[in-house]
Design a protein around this nucleic acid. Structure first.
Length: 805
RNA sequence: GCGGGUGUGGCGGAAUUGGCAGACGCGCUAGACUUAGGAUCUAGUGUCUCUCGACGUGGGGGUUCAAGUCCCUCCACCCGCACCA
C-alpha cells in the first residue's frame, strides 16, 4: 500500500507550525549555523518549481544541522517592493500594497505546504515600515559619510517604465525588467559611491567560498585596470588633456589621439575649417540610441578636429580625432592611439589611413595589431626592454618628468540610487526653501510611504509622490522653515542589501539588530540562490555590508561566507519554463498529486544542484515510488510497524551497507551533493528488501537521514517506530568506521590493463602474496601460456596488472 | 573577441589521489502474482558479434603497466561581458 501523503503532510505541517518546532533560540549556547535562501519577490503568478530547489537544499542542511546539535537560523521573507507589483497595480487600478499582501499570502501558503523548516516568527517584509525604517537609517548613515550624493549625470531613462535604471539593470540597451527601450538622458539623481569600495569588493573576493564563475563576473564588473594617466599638451593651445593607458611603454608608437564626442575640449580645439564636419558627426552620434551604439556592426567612425596634440615623450605632433569608440565614461574620455599594438586603434587607423608605427618586435602589423610581448623598438630609451620592464621604466620616466602618474581606473560606476516610482522606500531627505538639504532626523523614521490612488509616473521624471502635497510639504517646527520631501524612492535592490541582518533580530525597534546577536550569527554560513543575482544583488549587498562594518554595525567584512548557485529546472521539452511555452509546472499540483516529500526528493535527485535539468514526470513518479518502497518496508497495511523491523543486534547482511549509507549520506549532504546521497539511500533500501529482517536501530538511523529530504514521511515513520516527539532534534546517526571494514576484498586481475579475472584476498595480504595468488588463478595461467611475464603491478586491495607478451 | 563552464548508454546522471566505466533512477524486455494492471515482486538491459572476443566517456594525437580522470590539439554547445584604452 502507498502512504496517504495528503493526510500525513497536513498533520505534520500543522504540528510544526503550532508547536513552533523551528523557532531559533537566538542566544542559545549551541554552535550556530545560518542557512539563508535568497528571499523571493512575491510575484502574482505564485511559486514556481524552480523556487523549491534552492529552498530544499538549505532546508536539508538546516534539518541535518539541528540534528547534529547546532542552533540553526533558517528564515524566509519577502522582497516585496519593485516594479512588477507596481506595473500590475497601474494596469488594474489596484493598490500595490494590497496586491503585494495577497501575493505574500499565496507564497507563504505555498512555501508552508512544502514543509520547509523556517522560523515563521522571523519573517521580514521589505515593504513593512518597521523594516524599511532601517533601510532608510542605513541611507542616512551613507549620506553622513559622503557616500550618498546628488549628481547630474547621464542616466538610463526608460520612458516605458517612467523611471531611470542602474547600469546593471540595462541589458543590451533594454530594461532588465520588461525589455523596454532605454535612452541616455542627463538628470539629477541620487548616487551611492560604491566606487569608494571597488578595491575592497575586488580583493575580498579571494577569501570567499563562492563559485569561481560568480567571482569572475564580479571581477569583470568592477574591472580594475592599472596603468598611467599621461598628460598631452595641445599645439598652439592653452588647454591640455589627460589620457589613460595600460600600456605607457608604447607611448613612442602613439600616432594620433582620440577624444570622446562628449569630451569638454571638443568644441574649444576644433579648427574653423573642421567645425561643420565635427558638428555633423556629433549630431549623428547623439541621435544614436544605446541600442545602435552597442550594435554588432562595429565599423569605426570618427572625424578629425584639425588640432594636434604633442606627445610628451618625444615631442611628436599627433592629430586629434573624435570618435565614439572612445567612451566619456571611462578613464578620462580621451586616449592616445597606438594602432600597431591595439586592435581598436588599428581598425580605426586602417579606416582613416593613419600612420601605424610598430614599437614592439614580433607580429605582423600589415595584417593585424600585435598585442603580445616583445622587445621594444623605435622607442628611444625603452629600446630592448620587454613589456613588463618597458611599462615600469615608462612609468618612472613619466613621474620624474611630471608628464604623468600611475593610475588605476575601474569599469564600476557609482550606483544610481533613485527611482521615479511610487512603490519603493522613500529617500529620507528634505530640500529646504533656503536651498539646503538635510536628512530626516533619526527619531522621525520611518518616513512612511503615503497611501494614494495616484501612482502613475508623471513621465516627466518626477515621482508620483510629488503630487501628494500633504506629504511632500513640511515645515520645521522650531525654525518655521519650509521644505519639500525628496520624492524619488529607492531601487528594489535596497531592501535586499541587508535583510539577512534583520532576520537575526527582526522585531528590534532600537537598532537594526542587536550587536550581540549580530556578533554571534554572522556571517551567513551558506547562501543559496540563482546565478541571476551574480552582480546586482550580491555586489550591492557586499557594498552595504562593508559600509556597515566600517561604521561598527556588523562584525564581519563579508556577509556570505559560502555561496552556491542552484541550476534551473527546465520544462519537460528542455526549454526554460514560461507561460507562453506552456511548459510550466505548478508546485501546488505536484504537492496535491504526489506530495511535498516527493517533490523535494525528486528535485534533489534530478542531478547535481548546480545543473540545469529538464523536468520529467516519469522521474517524479520514480521518486514517489521510492518513498512508497520505504513505507512498505516499515509499515503494514494496518499502519503498524512491519514485522520485518526487529529489536536486537546487527544483521550481518546489512551492517556494512548501513554504516556506509550513514557515512556517505552525511558527507554528501554536507557537500550539497544530494543526488548521490539519495542514491545511497536507495541502495540501502534495496538491500534491506533482500534480507530477512532489519534491526530497529538501522531503521531508526535510516529514518533520521531521510528526515531532511522527506520530513513529513520521516516524522510519521518515527512515530510508528514508537516515538512521541518530533524527529527534528533527534541526534544524527553515527557510523562506525570499523563496521565498514571487511576481511576479504575483491581484487581484479588485469593482463595488459584488461580485466581477465577476479579473486578474493585477505584484506591484510601483502603485495607478494597477492601477486603469487593472482598468477595461480586458472584463467590467468591459461592466458599466460607461452608468454613472458615482464612486470606485475599490485595495488593492494584493488587490482593486479600483469604485463606479459 | 575576452572570461567561465560543459561534453559519459535510449534519457537524468555516478565514478577520492590515474586503478573493475555506466552506481542510483527513468525507460525498455522477460517472468511471477493477478479478473485486471499505468500496482507490486524477481531477473535482464553500453555497442557489435550473441561462442571466443572486439570496441566503447565529443574528434585526433601523446604520457603511463593502467586515462572519463594528466598533457597537446581540434570541434560542439551553454552562461557572463562586450569598443573599458
Amino acid at each position: 500500500m502507498s502512504f496517504n501523503h495528503r493526510k500525513i503532510e497536513e498533520k505534520w505541517r500543522n504540528y510544526w507550525i503550532d508547536e513552533k518546532t523551528f523557532a531559533t533560540k537566538i542566544d542559545s549556547e549551541k554552535q550556530k549555523f545560518y542557512a539563508l535562501d535568497m528571499f523571493p519577490y512575491p510575484s502574482g503568478s505564485g511559486l514556481h518549481v524552480g523556487h523549491p530547489e534552492g529552498y530544499t537544499a538549505t532546508d536539508i542542511l538546516s534539518r541535518m544541522k539541528r540534528m547534529q546539535g547546532y542552533e540553526v537560523l533558517h528564515p524566509i521573507g519577502w522582497d516585496a517592493f519593485g516594479l512588477p507589483a507596481e506595473q500590475y497595480a497601474l494596469d488594474t487600478g489596484n493598490d500595490p500594497a494590497v496586491f503585494t499582501e495577497q501575493n505574500i499570502n499565496t507564497f507563504r501558503r505555498q512555501i508552508q505546504s512544502l514543509g520547509f523548516s523556517y522560523d515563521w516568527d522571523r519573517e521580514v517584509n521589505t515593504t513593512d515600515p518597521g523594516y524599511y525604517k532601517w533601510t532608510q537609517w542605513i541611507f542616512i548613515k551613507l549620506y553622513e559619510k559622503g557616500l550618498a550624493y546628488v549628481d547630474e549625470v547621464p542616466v538610463n531613462w526608460c520612458p516605458e517604465l517612467g523611471t531611470v535604471l542602474a547600469n546593471e539593470e540595462v541589458i543590451d540597451g533594454k530594461s532588465e525588467r520588461g525589455g523596454h527601450p532605454v535612452v541616455r538622458k542627463p538628470m539629477k539623481q541620487w548616487m551611492l559611491k560604491i566606487t569608494a569600495y571597488a578595491d575592497r569588493l575586488l580583493d575580498d573576493l579571494e577569501d570567499l567560498d563562492w563559485p569561481e564563475s560568480i567571482k569572475d563576473m564580479q571581477r569583470n564588473w568592477i574591472g580594475r585596470s592599472e596603468g598611467a594617466e599621461v598628460e598631452f599638451t595641445i599645439d598652439g593651445h592653452e588647454d591640455n588633456f589627460k589620457v589613460f593607458t595600460t600600456r605607457p611603454d608604447t607611448l613612442f608608437g602613439a600616432t594620433y589621439a582620440v577624444l570622446a564626442p562628449e569630451h569638454p575640449l571638443v568644441e574649444k580645439i576644433t579648427k574653423d575649417e573642421q567645425k561643420d564636419s565635427v558638428q555633423a558627426y556629433l549630431d549623428k552620434v547623439q541621435s544614436k540610441s544605446d541600442l545602435e551604439r552597442t550594435d554588432l556592426a562595429k565599423e569605426k567612425t570618427g572625424v578629425f578636429t584639425g588640432a594636434y596634440a604633442v606627445n610628451p615623450i618625444n615631442g611628436e605632433k599627433l592629430p586629434i580625432w573624435i570618435a565614439d569608440y572612445v567612451l566619456m565614461t571611462y578613464g578620462s574620455g580621451a586616449i592616445m592611439a597606438v594602432p600597431a599594438h591595439d586592435e581598436r586603434d588599428y581598425e580605426f587607423a586602417k579606416q582613416f589611413n593613419l600612420e601605424i608605427l610598430p614599437v614592439l618586435e614580433g607580429g605582423d602589423i600589415e595584417n593585424e595589431a600585435f598585442t603580445g610581448d616583445g622587445k621594444h623598438i623605435n622607442s628611444g630609451f625603452l629600446n630592448g626592454l620587454n613589456k613588463e620592464d618597458g611599462i615600469e621604466k615608462a612609468l618612472e620616466w613619466l613621474e620624474e618628468n611630471n608628464k604623468g602618474t600611475r593610475k588605476t581606473t575601474y569599469r564600476l560606476r557609482d550606483w544610481l540610487f533613485s527611482r521615479q516610482r511610487y512603490w519603493g522606500e522613500p529617500i529620507p531627505v528634505i530640500h529646504w526653501e533656503d536651498g539646503t538639504q538635510t536628512t530626516v532626523k533619526e527619531e522621525e523614521l520611518p518616513i512612511v510611504l503615503p497611501k494614494t490612488t495616484e501612482i502613475k509616473p508623471s513621465g516627466t521624471g518626477e515621482s508620483p509622490l510629488a503630487n501628494i502635497h500633504d506629504w511632500v510639504n513640511v515645515t520645521d517646527p522650531t525654525t518655521g522653515l519650509k521644505g519639500k520631501r525628496e520624492t524619488n524612492t529607492m531601487p528594489q535592490w535596497a531592501g535586499s542589501c541587508w535583510y539577512f541582518l534583520r532576520y537575526i533580530d527582526p522585531n528590534n525597534t532600537n537598532e537594526l539588530a542587536s550587536k550581540e546577536a549580530l556578533n554571534k550569527w554572522l556571517p551567513v554560513d551558506v547562501y543559496i540562490g540563482g546565478a541571476e543575482h551574480a552582480v546586482l544583488h550580491l555586489l550591492y549587498a557586499r557594498f552595504w555590508h562593508k559600509f556597515l562594518y566600517d561604521i561598527g554595525v556588523v562584525p564581519t567584512k563579508e556577509p556570505f561566507q559560502k555561496l552556491f548557485n542552484q541550476g534551473m529546472i527546465l520544462g519537460e521539452n528542455n526549454e526554460k519554463m514560461s507561460k507562453s511555452k506552456g511548459n510550466v509546472v505548478n508546485p501546488d499540483e505536484i504537492v496535491e498529486s504526489h506530495g511535498a516529500d516527493t517533490l523535494r526528493l525528486y528535485e534533489m535527485f534530478m542531478g547535481p544542484l548546480d545543473a540545469s535539468v529538464a523536468w520529467s514526470t516519469n522521474g517524479l513518479d520514480g521518486a514517489r515510488r521510492f518513498l512508497d518502497r520505504i513505507w512498505r518496508l516499515f509499515v503494514t497495511d494496518e499502519n503498524m510497524l512491519s514485522e520485518k523491523i526487529q529489536e536486537g543486534n546487527d544483521n550481518d547482511d546489512l551492517v556494512r551497507i548501513y554504516h556506509e549509507t550513514i557515512k556517505k549520506v552525511t558527507q554528501n549532504f554536507e557537500d550539497l551533493r544530494f543526488n548521490t546521497g539519495i542514491s545511497q539511500m536507495m541502495v540501502f533500501i534495496n538491500e534491506a528488501y533482500k534480507t530477512d529482517y532489519v534491526p530497529k536501530s538501522y531503521a531508526e538511523g535510516f529514518v533520521k537521514v531521510l528526515a531532511p529530504i522527506a520530513p513529513h514521511l520521516a516524522e510519521e515513520l518515527w512515530s510508528i517506530l514508537g516515538h512521541d516527539e518530533t524527529i527534528s532534534y533527534q541526534p544524527w546517526p553515527a557510523f562506525d568506521e570499523k563496521k565498514l571494514e571487511v576481511n576479504e576484498v575483491e581484487v581484479v586481475i588485469q593482463i595488459l590493463g584488461k580485466v581477465r579475472a577476479k579473486m578474493m584476498v585477505d584484506k591484510e595480504a601483502t603485495k607478494e602474496e597477492i601477486e603469487e595468488k593472482a598468477l595461480n588463478v586458472d584463467a590467468i595461467k591459461e592466458r599466460l601460456e607461452g608468454k613472458t611475464v615482464r612486470k606485475v603491478i599490485v595495488v593492494p586491495g584493488k587490482l593486479v596488472n600483469i604485463v606479459a607478451n
